[in-house]
Computed example of a mutant assay.
Amino acid sequence: MAKPNKKGPTRTVDILCAKCKSPLFKYRKGGKGALVKCFKERIVTDFTTTPCECPNCGTVFGREALVRGTPAYKIIGGKAVMK
């Protein structure tokens, strides 16, 4: 499998907690599809203190995984929204 593009896309989106709307990441997302995974190398700003947990309400919004050999966060459906 091919690795994701190192430079990545230039468009940044805000990833928010679906429950309390507090910011989780500022992320360079490619394409116009749904938010399924966040590659760690594409995260511009990380507002979380512990991985995959909302700093405000404590909701677990994903899990750490290796996708195509690259560390990423797999997002649980409906737990995080993109703006």
Results as ranks from 00 to 15, higher is better:
1 M>G: 11
1 M>D: 06
2 A>C: 07
3 K>V: 05
3 K>Q: 04
3 K>D: 06
4 P>F: 05
5 N>E: 05
5 N>W: 02
6 K>E: 14
7 K>C: 06
10 T>F: 13
10 T>C: 09
10 T>G: 09
11 R>Q: 10
12 T>G: 02
12 T>W: 00
13 V>N: 05
14 D>N: 10
14 D>E: 13
15 I>L: 01
17 C>W: 06
17 C>P: 01
17 C>H: 01
17 C>F: 04
18 A>P: 08
20 C>H: 06
20 C>N: 01
20 C>K: 05
21 K>A: 10
22 S>N: 12
22 S>Y: 15
23 P>N: 10
23 P>R: 12
23 P>Y: 11
26 K>C: 13
26 K>F: 02
27 Y>V: 12
27 Y>Q: 11
27 Y>M: 12
28 R>W: 08
30 G>L: 02
32 K>M: 04
33 G>A: 00
34 A>D: 02
35 L>W: 06
35 L>T: 08
35 L>S: 00
35 L>I: 09
36 V>N: 08
36 V>I: 10
37 K>N: 14
37 K>A: 15
37 K>V: 14
38 C>Y: 07
38 C>Q: 10
39 F>W: 15
43 I>T: 14
44 V>I: 15
44 V>A: 14
45 T>G: 05
45 T>A: 12
47 F>M: 14
48 T>V: 11
49 T>R: 11
49 T>V: 14
50 T>G: 12
52 C>I: 04
53 E>C: 07
53 E>W: 01
53 E>F: 07
53 E>A: 01
53 E>Q: 07
54 C>Q: 07
55 P>W: 14
56 N>D: 11
59 T>Y: 00
61 F>V: 04
61 F>H: 07
62 G>V: 08
64 E>H: 05
64 E>S: 14
64 E>I: 13
65 A>H: 02
66 L>D: 08
66 L>Y: 01
67 V>P: 04
67 V>W: 13
68 R>Q: 11
69 G>K: 00
69 G>A: 06
70 T>A: 09
72 A>V: 13
72 A>T: 09
74 K>V: 13
75 I>Y: 00
75 I>L: 07
76 I>R: 07
76 I>H: 02
77 G>H: 00
77 G>K: 03
77 G>I: 00
78 G>P: 09
80 A>P: 04
80 A>H: 01
81 V>W: 05
82 M>P: 05
82 M>L: 12
82 M>E: 13
82 M>W: 11
83 K>G: 07
